[in-house]
């Protein structure tokens, strides 16, 4: 079962065809919540310095994969390795936890619940700097201001508590905090969704620069296919817990193969677009292969 039932475009992120050292390697990853199979036999690699997107239906298991990769959820089965270290089992001890934190950082989909409501952005970023990078408190204060500047937050906003910030300001605090740890893999779960397109452009340019300068890898989860095109090389498309298509981002967006990917691509608002329900599509792509997969 799983992805083998669907014709897959091969691409650089194809686990069998990957070259070079993988920074992150995920094999047969599966997660059950009771009888609900949220993630079903998912495999992918991200090369050092690579950038992979996960796109797909709401509820298809994207955040669940991200939480397993950072170690917040234990997989039902499957393996996750970063830099050759296994992370499918809980970390033993503080040193191991810190090493894992330095390897992988995540910016969550809901910045409000991932930020401590009693802690200002500046203090949250400083805490990460102290843990992962050290330095005197004066050095760290400079770095906090620098990181704030990179994501467009001023001193007052950095000193405010999360509840006194707008949605996009909170999201930028979370991005600055994750960058502070200088991780090797940064997971961005809908992390630019609450930003207006100009600030989003600033952050996307920043992410491209950081990747070019430091060789960090990205795992980007996003519903915005234009953002996906802008900062990833490869993409996997998920529907009901399984991967239905994978390949180079450009190829998948320009020539989607799987029925679900074609439906997704056709639903992007463009000038002249009118919203209509899936059930109203008279020319709807045939989704039978997709349902076959999830039922199988």
């Amino acid at each position: 079962m799983g992805e083998s039932a669907v014709p897959l475009a091969s691409g650089p992120s194809d686990p069998s065809g990957s070259t070079g050292e993988a920074l992150l390697s995920v094999r047969g990853l599966t997660k059950h919540f009771g009888t609900n199979v949220a993630v079903d036999d998912v495999s992918f690699d991200i090369a050092r310095g690579g950038s992979l997107a996960i796109v797909g239906e709401s509820g298809s298991g994207k955040t669940t994969i991200a939480k397993m990769v950072v170690g917040l959820l234990a997989p039902t089965s499957g393996t996750i390795t970063t830099c050759g270290h296994d992370r499918s089992t809980p970390a033993r001890g503080a040193a191991e936890r810190r090493r894992r934190g330095a390897e992988v950082q995540i910016v969550f989909q809901d910045p409000y619940s991932s930020l401590d409501p009693r802690q200002s952005g500046a203090s949250a970023i400083d805490e990460v700097l102290a843990l992962h990078r050290g330095g005197s408190s004066a050095d760290r204060a400079l770095r906090v201001a620098e990181l704030g500047d990179l994501v467009g937050l001023d001193d007052r906003q950095l000193r405010a508590l999360p509840k006194a910030l707008s949605g996009g300001q909170r999201q930028r605090v979370a991005i600055a905090r994750a960058l502070a740890a200088e991780p090797q893999l940064l997971i961005l779960d809908e992390s630019v969704a609450a930003l207006d397109v100009s600030i989003q452009a600033q952050v996307l340019n920043l992410l491209a620069d950081v990747r070019a300068d430091t060789g960090v890898s990205y795992l980007l989860i996003s519903h915005d296919l234009a953002v996906v095109r802008q900062i990833t090389d490869d993409v996997i498309v998920m529907h009901r817990g399984v991967v239905v298509e994978r390949g180079a981002t450009r190829d998948v967006l320009d020539h989607p193969q799987a029925a679900y990917t074609r439906l997704l691509r056709a639903s992007v608002p463009t000038p002249g677009w009118r919203p209509r329900r899936r059930s109203e599509w008279t020319d709807a792509p045939d989704l039978s292969d997709v349902s076959d997969v999830s039922a199988g």
Partner: peptide, 13 residues
């Protein structure tokens, strides 16, 4: 913002 574009089209309709 948290919806895939196909579900977004359903909601907007």
């Amino acid at each position: 913002t948290a919806l895939d574009v196909t579900t977004q089209a359903d909601v907007m309709a």
